[in-house]
Design a protein around this nucleic acid. Structure first.
Lengths: 134, 134
DNA sequence: GTATCTGCAAAACATTTGCCCTTTG
DNA sequence: CAAAGGGCAAATGTTTTGCAGATAC
């Protein structure tokens, strides 16, 4: 949408927050965390800036399991583990040797050119497994 | 939520539609397609039944790229190819030899038990590649 | 100075829910 | 007939947008 962007304190802080957090944040969470530093911050502006960051490829939008999207700063490719019991999301770095063959296979079988695989591993985290007898 | 379900013409037709369609359908699309046969059908009821079907594991909810969720009938495990240009979604069946090692690797490295991998391959479909010079 | 950014509030969607009537078993 | 299902409309939750004033360059 926007071709040219100026600097903005709010947007800088949003990106900084995404970068410093290990977990994935929803727009509302970002809003809550920054309200202290920017008392006049508006949720609409958080959405606007998250969209700009995604557009610029400085952040990534994830649609996991919840009702709202979550965002993370862009970094090296990685997959997500998702606990089907507690909903926790954890980053995992799968070796390329395992993922490259899948993309290659898909290219051959679909005729499409694959840019990247998006892999979610769904299961039960150690803690939830300990709690309930799953 | 519901423990016991009776039969319902509407729900049966929704599942039948999901099974017969090759593509993934949003609640609104399901609603539109069935309005002819059930003129009094309500969108709320489509949502209710889609949720019941997902709960019963007769259907699967997908959050791909769009604003609304889409649904498909449950069948053998498969991945999705997603065209980043036109948004088309296509099913692909990746051989187990390629996916099993990923789950195994993740189990070892996270301590979690993996139930299934959810794999989206994002790229550009042959048609879009032909149209634009991507 | 002007284009971009912001806050605010309203709007636009997507989805869920309560109520009361209809259907199923 | 009792319990589950459906239609309708209102409620909820998320994300986008129009506008008027503030800010960056």
């Amino acid at each position: 949408m926007s071709v040219q962007n100026r600097k903005s304190k709010q947007r800088d802080r949003i990106l900084e927050l995404l970068r410093s957090e290990r977990s994935h944040l929803s727009a509302v969470t970002v809003f809550d965390r920054l309200k202290t530093d920017f008392p006049s911050l508006s949720l609409g502006n958080v959405y606007r800036n998250l969209n700009i960051l995604v557009e610029r490829e400085e952040a990534v939008r994830l649609r996991i399991n919840d009702v709202s999207d979550v965002f993370e700063a862009k970094r090296e490719p990685h997959a997500h583990f998702i606990c089907m019991t507690c909903g926790a999301v954890e980053d995992i770095r799968i070796p390329d040797e395992l993922t490259v063959p899948i993309a290659a296979w898909a290219e051959q079988n679909t005729g499409a050119s694959i840019r990247y695989p998006k892999i979610d591993l769904v299961g039960i985290c150690p803690r939830c497994r300990a709690t309930a007898g799953a």
